[in-house]
Simulated scan of single mutants.
Amino acid sequence: MKKVNIYFNRWFSVAYHYMNLIRNNEDGVPVQIFATHPDIHHMSLQGADVAGTEPALTGIEYVQFCVDFCRRNEIDIFIPRLHMLDIALHAAMFDAIGTKVLVCRDLDLLETIMDKGKFYESVKETGIMTIPDYHVVSTAEQFKEAYHDLVAKGHHVCFKPTETEGGLGFRIIDNTRSPLQELFGHVTPLISFDEAYRILGSEPTFPELMVMELLEGYEYSIDCLSDENGRLLAAVPRRKAGGRLRLMEHIPELEEIASRVAEVYKIPFNFNIQMKYSGGIPKLLEINPRMSGGLHISCLSGINFPYLAVKSALGGEVQPAEFGDNVLASHVEQPLIMKINGESVIPDPVN
């Protein structure tokens, strides 16, 4: 059986787990995994067979680096994270060398998903799920108006950039906080309205922020798998269950939301929907058109999300999959030796 060459560009550390899930696939398909990152000691590279460093490039120059890497190493499947939109824009360059890219090729959709303000407008038009009350602002005065509007509706308020990953830039407005106590305690996302207004007012305009109602119920991350045409094959709702515990559970209304998202947007391969409850109603936080940071935990449900996406991209038949009973899971650190007597034990360098 021919070995499949798979390439990950700059990813999070958890890509280490994705790589091993693909390598230890249930069909016994042999794979060779390549990965690049600016830091040759980055943990994601420890799951690769062949590792290399990435240059600090953007736009078409970065895409050309990836194309050259794929050509040199005869890559069959490219799973991008960094500069995903640029890579999707130039996907034909990868087609020309026989590399399949696991990315959404609908550029308008991809741009919309990656801008939370635009995506909320899109969801509002479709009506497929509930969104929080929100405003998009770019001046201090707009921020002030948005804040007072949401407070008048009875909401606690938070804000975050419209274009960001994870929790970067997320803040909760709390006018009861004690800055002195916080100075001696843990770093928190709390900020008072007056402080936020003062900081935002230091510039005439700033990158767009979403000012929105703070949702205070359970947060669910729904890991989803679709085929190349966007047909939903699997969905696993996952939430924190205290400490390091994670619970994968059947929530019919969340599984139905995943089905509607797939039907309307047809996002291919792996994607993730983040929802949070408020007053018993699940409301959208965001959608990530890629594998989520906790996907390896959802794979403990028995569904190998990374490998099945690869299998689908290679033209293999992937049947719809459901997990059985609810699964409570956790994780522990795994120590790895990086060097012995000064000799590196990292993967083989790229030629």
Rank of each mutant, 00 (worst) to 15 (best):
S44F: 07
G52K: 13
N341T: 03
L215M: 15
T112V: 05
P335G: 06
T205H: 08
I173T: 08
R105G: 02
I79M: 15
Y120S: 06
R71Y: 08
Q142N: 05
S44H: 06
Q319T: 14
T112D: 11
V310F: 10
T176C: 04
E182W: 05
D68I: 08
E125H: 00
N5P: 02
Y197R: 10
I251Q: 11
E219T: 11
L308R: 14
E263V: 03
A309G: 12
L308P: 02
S221W: 00
E219V: 12
L85C: 00
L336I: 15
P347F: 05
F8T: 07
R171D: 05
E216C: 03
A15T: 14
P55K: 13
P132C: 02
R72A: 15
P204V: 10
S122M: 12
M114G: 04
P80W: 01
E208H: 13
A196K: 09
D348Y: 04
L284D: 07
E182L: 14
V4L: 12
C66M: 15
K144T: 14
I113H: 06
Y220M: 03
I131Y: 09
A258I: 07
P204K: 13
H41I: 04
I222K: 01
A15H: 04
G167W: 06
Y265C: 01
A91Q: 12
I40E: 13
Y134E: 02
N272C: 10
G154T: 07
P335N: 08
Y16H: 14
V264W: 06
I346P: 01
A88M: 03
R239W: 05
S292I: 09
A92R: 13
M93F: 07
F271P: 07
V101A: 07
R238F: 03
M275W: 01
M248L: 15
M338G: 00
K276A: 00
G167E: 10
T164W: 02
I287S: 08
P237C: 11
I303E: 11
E253W: 02
V236E: 06
V101R: 05
L102Y: 01
C224I: 08
T162Y: 06
A92N: 13
D27L: 10
I251G: 01
R239G: 00
I251F: 01
R246P: 02
I87V: 00
K116E: 09
T58Y: 10
V136I: 15
A56L: 13
H296P: 02
Q64K: 14
M84R: 05
E74F: 04
Y277I: 05
R244W: 01
E286S: 12
R171S: 15
F271Y: 15
T164I: 10
E26G: 03
I191A: 04
H42D: 15
V14W: 07
V50N: 05
K240H: 13
F193L: 12
L89N: 05
S13P: 04
V14T: 14
A92I: 04
G217I: 03
S138A: 11
Y120N: 04
Q64I: 01
M43H: 14
H41A: 12
A313D: 07
G59W: 00
G169S: 11
M338Q: 12
A15N: 06
K100R: 15
R239N: 12
T126P: 03
T162Q: 11
L285A: 02
K124S: 00
Q274D: 01
M275N: 02
I337L: 13
A321W: 03
V31Y: 06
V211K: 07
L45G: 09
H155L: 06
V157P: 09
G47K: 10
